[in-house]
Amino acid sequence: MARLPQLSAPVTLGDQAYAAIREAIVTGSLKRGEKVTERGLAELLTISATPVREALRRLEQDRLVERTGPRSVRIAQFGKEELREFTMIEDALRALAARLAAEKSTAAQRREMCACLDEADALRGELREVAPGTDRERDLVIGIQSLMRRFHSLVDEASGNATLMQMLRTVDAFGAAERHDSLLSEVRGEHRTIVDERYRQHRAIYDAIAAGNGERAEELMRAHSHSSNTSRIASRFPD
Results as ranks from 00 to 15, higher is better:
Ala176Thr: 07
Ala98Thr: 14
Asn161Met: 07
Ser159Pro: 05
Ser105Phe: 15
Thr170Phe: 06
Ile142Ser: 00
Leu30Pro: 01
Gln6Lys: 14
Leu140Lys: 03
Ala176Cys: 06
Arg188Met: 06
Leu59Arg: 00
Asp139Lys: 06
Cys114Gln: 13
Ala98Lys: 00
Thr134Gly: 06
Asp139Met: 15
Leu154Glu: 05
Ala19Ser: 14
Ile233Tyr: 05
Leu140Gln: 01
Glu137Ser: 05
His202Arg: 09
Glu103Ser: 15
Arg179Thr: 11
Gln166Phe: 07
Phe151Ala: 02
Ile142Asn: 07
Leu164Ala: 00
Val187Trp: 12
Thr106Gln: 08
Ile142His: 03
Ala98Gln: 08
Asp181Ile: 15
Arg99Leu: 13
Leu7Ser: 15
Glu82Ala: 13
Ala173Ile: 09
Met88Ser: 13
Gln61Gly: 04
Leu168Asp: 04
Arg188Phe: 13
Pro51His: 12
Leu93Gly: 04
Glu186Thr: 00
Leu93Val: 01
Leu183Ile: 06
Ser228Trp: 12
Glu34Lys: 07
Met1Thr: 10
Arg39Met: 09
Arg232Glu: 12
Phe174Ile: 10
Asp207Leu: 12
Glu23Val: 07
Leu168Met: 05
Glu82Leu: 13
Met113Glu: 11
Glu129Pro: 08
Thr230Tyr: 00
Ala120Cys: 07
Ile144Leu: 12
Arg32Ala: 12
Ala102Gly: 05
Arg169Gly: 03
Ala158His: 07
Glu126Pro: 09
Gln145Phe: 14
Glu66Asn: 07
Gln6Gly: 13
Glu157Gln: 06
Arg110Phe: 15
Gly212Ile: 15
Gly40Lys: 03
Val130Gln: 01
Ser225Trp: 10
Arg188Tyr: 08
Arg232Tyr: 00
Ser48Arg: 07
Ala102Asp: 07
Pro5Lys: 02
Asp15Ile: 00
Leu44Gly: 01
Ala42Lys: 02
Asp15His: 02
Ala158Thr: 07
Arg200Ala: 05
Glu66Gly: 01
Ala177Met: 05
Thr12Asp: 02
Ser29Glu: 11
Gln166Arg: 15
His152Asn: 03
Lys104Trp: 14
Leu56Tyr: 03
Thr50Phe: 13
Ser231Lys: 02
Leu117Val: 04
Ala95Thr: 09
Asn229Cys: 08
Leu13Phe: 12
Arg216Asp: 01
Ala162His: 11
Ala107Phe: 06
Gly79Ser: 03
Ser185Cys: 09
Arg53Cys: 10
Ser8Tyr: 01
Ala9Glu: 11
Gly33Ala: 08
Arg136Ile: 08
Asp15Gly: 03
Ser8Lys: 09
Glu119Gly: 15
Met113Trp: 10
Met1Phe: 04
Asp156Ile: 08
Asp118Thr: 08
Ala108Glu: 11
Glu112Gln: 12
Tyr206Gln: 01
Arg84Thr: 09
